[in-house]
Design a protein around this nucleic acid. Structure first.
Lengths: 251, 251
DNA sequence: CGTAAACGTGCAATAATATGCACTAATCAG
DNA sequence: CTGATTAGTGCATATTATTGCACGTTTACG
């Protein structure tokens, strides 16, 4: 049995039982407790479990999303402001999850008349303030970390829409690799969002540029606009403009 | 039993009882009072409880700001508390939208392992605090007043599930008319929830009893349990019990 | 005050863990 | 193909964490 396979089983058992004990795992997986402990250490290092004396527990709920929601708001607010200019009345808009897009949702004019399709419950709730906006929430498994729904139902549901524009919060964007994310599920969802929209707007703060993550969403050619911060230099943006992307910078 | 697990139970008992005593905990958790005291010291250090001579108290008067935001009356909290007793580990639970069910979601033990299917984004977000709970959000048009998703996609999605129990917040319930709601869409959704669950629990505060609304969800026979307040008289409840419904009252 | 309960501390027993080392199997450069 | 390297594992041993108990001190409350 491979190490990764074994660690996968540990995770699975943890999620079904709520807790796991080292001796119990040793017995079930037929390896020594030492190996189990090493596995648990690895998994704890990867922030997948909460290691405790005697075994492991489900990871304590992280307030990552809330923390991120606090941080770096001015840059994101500026980016959101620019993205606003790409939205017009009576459009069908796909809004990706994430803090930048949540900021965008909050910044929408209150008299905007539009349909917003999103996999982010917080965005849906935020848009309750906008009487003219019809909100369609995409259903699926709720990812607590990113506060979005993921899974095949989200992708299936997206297929049934034809949106005018899609606002994508990107984790990583690179001139050659294109858009990539740290999570397989999210990659599929973003791909489906891109496929269902006529125009695609990527919202990327400065630190996202020229970086890459494990899962590729698609090439730069999939994007129509790239919105980023004022502070980014022209040379940094040159390769993006070179492939025909319209780059907008906040002021 | 792991230390962290035990401390989790202490927290849970504290939240349900309002206070805990060292000897009582020692008895309940089958460890010495010394260990209990060490646990209480740890928890106090982590600012999770307020340590006092003899045991511990809740640190802040209000345990959850979400509860306050909803203006949770004590009645609703009590109803939710009773409904908790109908939930066990490893169940698949359908949670209806509404303030009472949100209260219920917030009151779930943090170490509960279960799957929750809901059409309420606020409930989904609230359950992000529960690492053992897998949340499935039902997608559809977002109703801003009720803060739930509605529409045919919700009903379609519900068809694909077979839940152990369904927790229904009811607007109106009447011995002869059964459950009814003021909105056609919601009626359809509740009907679908009932159809997908083995047991149906209706949560109804006192003022909901013996009232009716325009759209009928179904007869009382669809329900398994009716949870309501202590203050409701036995004569009021008699017709409900007469049709074989198990009526539970908060204390 | 005085008493009993509650508390803190040091200590020993036990369980869990970390670390160093040896062995195996797979990989890879030459 | 061969020898070297490396990741993964199990074992022995040292270290640490957790717990219960003993004992002296503090606290609550009549």
């Amino acid at each position: 049995m491979l190490k990764e396979e074994r660690q996968g089983q540990i995770l699975q058992m943890l999620h079904s039982e709520g807790k796991v004990l080292a001796p119990q795992l040793s017995l079930a997986l037929k390896v020594s407790e030492d190996t189990i402990r090493r596995d648990l250490r690895d998994l704890a290092e990867a922030r997948l479990i909460q290691r405790v004396h005697g075994g492991a527990l489900l990871r304590a709920p992280s307030s990552n999303y809330l923390q991120r929601r606090q941080g770096a708001t001015t840059a994101k607010a500026h980016i959101a402001q620019v993205a606003l200019s790409l939205i017009r009345n009576d459009q069908v808009i796909i809004l990706d999850g994430g803090t930048t897009t949540l900021q965008l949702a909050c910044s929408l004019p209150t008299d905007l008349v539009a349909t917003v399709i999103t996999n982010s419950p917080p965005i849906g709730i935020a848009l309750a303030q906008h009487p003219g906006v019809e909100v369609i929430l995409l259903g699926g498994k709720f990812s607590k970390e990113a506060q979005v729904t993921v899974g095949v139902t989200v992708i299936e549901a997206l297929r049934t829409f034809r949106a005018d524009v899609c606002m994508l919060g990107v984790c990583s964007v690179h001139p050659e690799l294109g858009v990539s994310v740290p999570n397989l599920e999210e990659a599929y969802v973003k791909r489906a969002m891109i496929a269902s929209a006529a125009e695609v707007v990527a919202l990327a703060s400065a630190e996202k540029l020229n970086t890459a993550a494990p899962y590729v969403v698609g090439p730069l050619a999939d994007l129509t606009y790239l919105v980023t911060e004022q502070s980014v230099s022209a040379t940094t943006l040159k390769p993006y403009r070179a492939v025909g992307l319209s780059v907008l910078q906040a002021d």
